[in-house]
Design a protein around this nucleic acid. Structure first.
Lengths: 182, 182
DNA sequence: ACAGGCATGTAAATAGTTACATGATTCG
DNA sequence: CGAATCATGTAACTATTTACATGCCTGT
């Protein structure tokens, strides 16, 4: 079998906890992994088919009320595949942050407008922080500690980032002041 | 004119400082923006043509020695376009971190193997930190303070991240100990 | 009745990487 | 001379998003 995509492992990992439908997987992703690994319907549904064909997950019809619904559960092969992947050292770690990109080029703007970039970035991070806090509240007691570790990491990260924006804003305003008093 | 891609603004921002060839742009990206916004030859060269056609940059033949070479400089229109973009609040901020993804699913592994994920992640972040430090050393004195602000932000971030990995590793080992003593 | 959520899916477009082709020049 | 680097480019592939289509069910 060819290499599986990272999205495939997101699915394997999520259906390992409990059987889920494509729709549910998308909902869970949007409240958990999407902060460090997103996935859209356009990836999830085709991937579910591929994984089922490869025998790594198994789908069965489990309607909710009268509503048609296919839930997938992981197979023994799927679990082995997931564990094999988990054992390999992680490779990909990318960031695409338009705020940092704009800040990098901010010399093209007057100082007071450059500072605005930092303010936007801080607001974004605080919004994410609130979002994560809401998710943290929702979670009850569960045995698996890892999702909570990662969630708390996200909280700490967004706090660090917001704080950094604040400090850099202050630094910029300070240096503007210095220049004026020279 | 249609919406420009983020890569287009990377190019506009870089050629604004000084005229550069596609090859040089790629090299600069790899030592600066690629930590928060990457770009490959497959994006850069076609984008240079588009931007030149749109009149936002202008290319001219400037051979190095006998070696053919086209350098691009920003036009007045290009600078206006760049500034207009910089003034809009940043939208995109994504992360794809395979380490966090694996950690999220680490319950599928025995604890001692789960801890390995954190060790790999820490090593990765320390490697990035060293890389950034090397870049910091290289930079001489320049008037534009923003690239250095962003670089220092990257240094602080990688340090925070490595430290977080260390703390989480300790926490995991502690909780494993607790379980044993119950 | 109708809005909103549940549910599955696909088409088209955009984004981005990788690998390759080509060829000149410089340095050891 | 040979390796590395400068330099430009493209083709093929993979990834990913967006938007849409479809239709049922539930609650107000």
């Amino acid at each position: 079998m060819e290499q599986l995509s990272a999205t495939a492992y997101v699915i394997l990992g999520l259906v390992r906890n409990e059987p889920r439908s494509g729709y549910e997987i998308k909902a869970v992703v949007d409240n958990s992994t999407r902060f460090f690994w997103a996935a859209s319907y356009g990836q999830i549904y085709p991937e579910l088919k591929r994984l089922a064909e490869a025998g790594l997950i198994a789908g069965s019809d489990v309607p909710t009320g009268g509503r048609k619904r296919t839930v997938y559960e992981i197979t023994a092969d799927g679990e082995e595949e997931l564990r094999a992947w988990l054992r390999q050292a992680p490779q990909t770690f990318e960031m695409r942050d338009e705020g940092l990109l704009k800040l990098f080029f901010a010399d093209a703007l007057p100082r007071d407008e450059a500072v605005e970039i930092l303010r936007s970035m801080k607001a974004q991070r605080l919004a994410i922080n609130e979002r994560l806090r809401a998710i943290e509240q929702m979670k009850g007691e569960i045995e698996d500690p890892f999702p909570m570790i990662v969630l708390r990491g996200g909280l700490e990260f967004s706090e660090w980032f917001a704080d950094w924006c604040e400090r850099m804003e202050a630094q910029l305003l300070d240096s503007a002041l210095e220049k004026r008093s020279e």
